[in-house]
Simulated scan of single mutants.
Amino acid sequence: MTLLTFRFAPSPNGELHLGHAYSALLNQQMAARAGGRLLLRIEDIDIARCTPEFEAGIFHDLKWLGLGWEEPVRRQSEHFAEYRAVLDRLIAEELVYPAFMSRGEIRAFIAETGGRDWPRDPDGVPLYPSLDKALSMKERKRRIAENIPFAWRLDVEAATAHMSGALSWTEFTDETMAATHSVEARPQAWGDVIVARRDIPTSYHLAVVVDDALQGVSHVVRGQDLYAATGVQRLLQELLGLSPPRYFHHRLILGPDGRKLSKSLKDTGLAALRHAGMAPQDVRRLVGL
């Protein structure tokens, strides 16, 4: 019998806060209840912002909370060659294209053409204009050879044409995993998302589906803020022939002002709470566990 496999996958670009503690502890609780495995993954593809110091802090905080996980820990920065191989496959199948427009150029184009009526993704960001898809192969190669900055974007129209039917995912209704329902995946809502950059051969979306498949993750337990993004990841799983895990998108831990906790604002950092004398059981009480 195959063990159910859960994972907690933080990015070492800041200190863990109460929201991370809730997600980590909930993964531990659900894995234990199911008699399954818990993995720790370090999602450090953002080499400019991720640091060894923040990674060390993650290990310290999680061990303090009483979390245990299987070894070895997978670090995404050590697997760029694997992501590059998957990206090359998408390039060969013409499911991605090099996108050269800068943020300023995108804003200017939208202001001139669509203005406030320009479609936006679920996060409120304007969708990428499709101008680059019309470039000839010769022009694309010329720009790349001249070191013009670009990102590889998923051609969602071409990608969805590859699908034989509707796309969905299985979502658990609560943390007891007693019931599920099917959710329609809507990757089109995000437009042509970035799947890799010139200097980093992956993005969050691409790396996470590759990692989950390679690590045999059966259950993805993460915050509600990633609920809509699951549609993009389901599309990539479909294109790459990867079996999708089941999902549970848990509630978010909010600050006193009702907003989502943030690493950048150092909201309720676990290290600060520990230094203030708080115990792990106090953290569990604060997050409702």
Rank of each mutant, 00 (worst) to 15 (best):
L87E: 04
T160N: 11
R107A: 11
I47G: 07
G68L: 07
P122L: 03
V220S: 02
V193H: 01
A108G: 06
E71Q: 15
I58A: 09
F100T: 09
A272S: 06
F80G: 06
F80A: 06
K133W: 11
A178E: 14
T230N: 11
Q281K: 13
A145H: 04
Y83S: 10
A279D: 14
V220G: 02
G165P: 03
C50T: 03
V86E: 00
E184C: 15
L87A: 00
R186E: 12
L4I: 02
P72C: 11
T176M: 01
L4N: 15
V208K: 07
A229S: 15
V209M: 11
E53W: 05
G104L: 03
H60K: 07
H250N: 03
A161Q: 15
F100M: 10
V195M: 01
G288R: 02
D155C: 04
A81V: 12
D132W: 05
A56R: 05
E157F: 08
F8H: 00
I144H: 08
D267A: 12
H205P: 05
A24T: 07
G258W: 11
K138Y: 09
A111N: 06
G216K: 02
L135C: 04
I148E: 14
G57D: 01
D44S: 05
E15T: 14
E157I: 11
T230Q: 10
A31L: 00
L39P: 05
D61W: 12
H20N: 13
P256H: 04
M137R: 08
A271S: 12
Q224P: 00
I106T: 12
